[in-house]
Design a protein around this nucleic acid. Sequence first.
DNA 1: TAATTTGTTTCACCTTAGTGAAATAACAGG
DNA 2: CCTGTTATTTCACTAAGGTGAAACAAATTA
Lengths: 149, 149
Amino acid sequence: MSEDGNRLGAELSLRVVMFHEAIARRLGVSNSEHKMLDLVARHADGITPGELSAATGLSNAAVTKIIDKLVAADYVRRERSSRDRRSFRIRTTPHFQQTSRPTAAGLARRIEEMNQGFDQEELAAIGRWITGVIEALKVETERLESRGR
Amino acid sequence: MSEDGNRLGAELSLRVVMFHEAIARRLGVSNSEHKMLDLVARHADGITPGELSAATGLSNAAVTKIIDKLVAADYVRRERSSRDRRSFRIRTTPHFQQTSRPTAAGLARRIEEMNQGFDQEELAAIGRWITGVIEALKVETERLESRGR
DNA sequence: TAATTTGTTTCACCTTAGTGAAATAACAGG
DNA sequence: CCTGTTATTTCACTAAGGTGAAACAAATTA
């Protein structure tokens, strides 16, 4: 799956991006708001605005505004950090969890079903593969962002 | 890989989106321009502005402007369609192919390498799985866009 | 060949996303 | 406690991304 794999990967990438956007529209947030939301959601222990701007490359001001909108939508809340009272920990609200789950549920169910067609070894391989791809994406994104080619 | 698979999927999705954005920045185009570029790139035989607005949900005016920018960057060109001379076929330029390949090459190579760790059956399963996921994404995106839940 | 429709672009405009700089408030070190 | 620093927000502003309506030009139909 070499050259062919490349095409598959590109297609997957585009489809993921478009799905991501569709979810955003459904949640009533913009793409950057959704990305931010995703980032927050993946930190169960909360994440600070500063970390968010570092992670996204956006200015602090931009992050503040996005958080404001997410707070207004009741997807996220600010909790003053106990150790540093200048700072906040941003975390998702129950409302977000309840709202976001069903929107992605259709896809989850569909993939679930599809997975029935694979045996245990295959599923294990697929799991390993995805983990590897995530790592690769992380490293390569980093590389593209920072130093030249 | 059920609940766990969900988390993996979310992580994969976010990483893909962020990688996509990193590539866009590298190519010097905006996210929507990049999405459009991707869409064009996947149609070797070219695609019309009308089809592009249908595919993205953007207005014709928006598509025209994005194409203008992509043309200015020499990533894409308009070829008058032979059968309908009002219309164009948009296709990527050699310059795009030369520019875009190396930016994604790092990831491709890395995944290539990773694939060495899988045998033929596993790779085949992974390929089938990806194809299935793409289909699922397509259907679910469609569903989210159009009719309610 | 006139009338209508279709594909795309141009125009004038609005909204949203993002910025840098100043303001606020809490921290860390002497 | 001052002093300087750090985390975040507020403010005033610019630029991007988008829209609908009008304008064109080629295609289709009658």
